[in-house]
């Protein structure tokens, strides 16, 4: 098991109180697995991604453990965590467009970063150039400033840079969200290729765009209001979802071949609950068509079939 997260809770400290953005999540990611995380804005998916590599100053680790390759990660300790970053856990950020220092040539920036990790640039350079080639970039980009590259090029440089030391786990946060559809496809394909080449062992791809996950992910984890709703192989999530939230989320996607001038695409009524003071029990029950008395008690995240886990009383 590459990554094993147990009952992880990460809260945000705010003036109004603690926002329970991640409130007890437990899941595993297998070796070589690309797991997608989907959910609407504010469901805790980005918090989860950040918690695995670097908590920002407002985030607080409230409990639970994260183990990578059997070793427990000290996620609450910024200094101790530094040893694992980049070599073990790496990140492709939401903001690849502005992720690189604008006043430093890309090659020099990579050299600085590698030196900080005790790696000699000259030794890695051939591999770096080879990988740039894999994503269709010329080694000459290393002599350029970030401003001289297009958005898609920067995204690919960041992809190569983030995976250069062959991390065990790569977290891609909204990797494709800022790209046009053709660049999205190229980046999605590159992610899968990098896994296939063994540059990264396993991957977590966070996005609000389920159609991207369908191209990339082996399994999809659906989150709702700081809790897990469902995890299953990508095919199953699309074709045979069990959790009512997943069903409605998939139902809100347009289908190829359907005409939407005759029928309206359905959305999900209502809004997610405030995480400042979340309701007890199932957090989806206010919007759920299947809600009943039992839902006042939080449903467990249970395995209903091989590799298919759901948190819903109506299903299990």
């Amino acid at each position: 098991m590459a990554l094993s997260v147990t009952d992880l809770r990460v809260w945000y400290r705010t003036l109004k109180g603690d926002v329970k953005a991640l409130d007890g999540v437990t899941f595993d990611v297998a070796d070589g697995e690309i797991m997608g995380i989907a959910g609407e804005s504010g469901c805790g998916k980005t918090t989860l991604g950040k918690a695995l590599i670097r908590l920002d100053t407002r985030m607080r680790h409230e409990g639970g453990t994260v183990a990578l390759d059997g070793e427990k990660l000290p996620i609450a300790d910024d200094a101790a965590m530094r040893r694992y970053r980049y070599r073990e856990v790496s990140l492709i950020p939401q903001y690849a467009m502005s992720a690189m220092n604008p006043t430093r040539k890309i090659g020099k920036m990579i050299r600085d970063l590698l030196a900080a990790h005790g790696v000699r640039y000259a030794e890695v350079l051939p591999e770096l150039e080879r990988r740039l080639g894999l994503v269709g970039l010329d080694a000459e980009v290393l002599k350029r400033y970030p401003i001289e590259l297009s958005g898609g090029m920067k995204q690919r440089v960041v992809l190569v840079l983030s995976t250069l030391l062959n991390p065990s786990l790569l977290i891609g946060d909204e990797v494709t969200s800022a790209l046009d559809v053709s660049s999205q496809k190229a980046v999605a394909r590159a992610l899968v290729e990098f896994r296939d080449h063994g540059f990264v062992r396993s991957m977590i791809v966070i996005t609000h765009d389920i159609s991207v996950l369908f191209q990339v992910a082996d399994t999809i984890l659906v989150m709702y209001a700081g809790h897990l709703a469902e995890k299953a192989p990508a095919r199953t999530i699309i074709d045979a979802p069990l959790h009512p939230y997943t069903k409605m989320l998939i139902g809100a996607l347009p289908q190829v071949g359907d005409r939407y001038d005759e029928q309206r695409l359905s959305g999900i009524e209502g809004r997610p609950p405030s995480l400042l003071d979340p309701p007890t029990g199932c957090r989806f029950r206010d919007r759920c068509p299947l809600a009943h008395d039992r839902c006042a008690e939080a449903p467990p995240f249970r395995e209903v079939a091989e590799g298919h886990q759901v948190a819903c009383w109506a299903v299990s």
């Binding site: 670097r54 950020p93 502005s98 220092n101 970063l113």
Partner: peptide, 20 residues
């Protein structure tokens, strides 16, 4: 800024981030 966050996430020491 974003580049500082990215460098920190990749485990760059504080010294490097501050120099930039």
């Amino acid at each position: 800024s974003d580049y500082s966050n990215y460098l920190s996430a990749l485990g760059a020491p504080r010294r490097l981030v501050r120099r930039y």
